[in-house]
Design a protein around this nucleic acid. Structure first.
Lengths: 162, 162
DNA sequence: TTGAGGCCCATGATATCCCATGGTAGATAC
DNA sequence: GTATCTACCATGGGATATCATGGGCCTCAA
């Protein structure tokens, strides 16, 4: 902890109001990295999950878009912008450490009752745990860890990938 | 929130008096970016929707047009300028967070009963939702989000692009 | 007088805030 | 080493504020 990177994992529940606890370690990292309690959640290009990051990483994405700004009056450039800004959402972490997922984010990430958080250094992924178990190319140890977490929370593990 | 960009999306209704709520998050962004409650709405060059922006972005458009000034004595350049500025309209957001669309803007954007707002960072688009569904070059995930919004508001979705 | 636009208020739905609770891990004492 | 304490964390529920939207009235112009 306290080294300004996202580390670790967690399996947290989404309640009836779409509220979701951000893992405490991730919250600490967000504060340390950005000085804010804001978290950005958006699509993960080419991967079937959501991507979470703090303001400092968002600024990098935005800078990349500003370089495309001269294209903004082409339809293609505009749609790129609307996808990034339209589907990514800045959310504020409340006093209890939770965010409220929008319906659009739940749809984007195929989020149902639980979210599987996996750290990636400068960002973290948010998965529907069952989608994660369907992925190939993931270290078998991560599968075992997730399956243990799922069992601990009473989530049926439908005998997925070994 | 609170990062001075337009983020997210919304599907809002136009009432019998042509009144339209600007999404609360967009209003906040307009205030944060420009310090005013004015919103500029005009044509989106090359795209079949309206473009909304605040005063600070209007200044950028003006500067970009100034750079094209040497074209002003060609018919093409002059028409482009008059189109961009002649048909763009500054509107004031009222206490309830609404604007009143002019007949010209409704015509320009083919706006009927609902407006689909999509953020693009420094600006946002305003679509007739059915026109949006007809566009190509939009990420399929945005289609899904809009279609869910339309269903939630009881708008018939005429089995458009998957 | 009639119609359009501006202003104010009403309302239902939704999101936001605040406090409560049980569980867990780490610390402390024995 | 084991039992107890304590602090924090994830989660739930109820109260409250905000939002999108509809409707009425007043004014001004034709």
């Amino acid at each position: 902890m306290a080294d300004d990177f996202f580390h670790g994992y967690a399996l947290n529940a989404v309640d009836a109001k779409s509220r979701l606890s951000i893992p405490a370690e991730f919250r600490d990292a967000i504060m340390a990295r950005s000085g804010t309690k804001d978290v950005f959640i958006g699509p993960a290009p080419g991967i079937d999950c959501l991507l979470g990051y703090d303001k400092s990483h968002a600024a990098k994405l935005q800078a990349r878009l500003d370089r495309l700004d001269h294209d903004e009056d082409t339809a293609e450039g505009a749609f790129k912008s609307t996808f990034l800004f339209g589907s990514a959402t800045p959310l504020k972490i409340d006093e209890a450490g939770r965010i409220v997922l929008t319906a659009g984010l739940r749809d984007l990430g195929d989020i149902t009752s639980h979210v599987w958080f996996v750290a990636g250094g400068n960002w973290f992924q948010m998965w529907n745990p069952y989608r994660y178990l369907e992925q190939t190319g993931i270290d078998a140890r991560m599968f075992r860890i997730l399956r243990r977490e799922m069992e601990a929370k009473g989530l049926p593990v439908t005998e997925a990938a070994r």
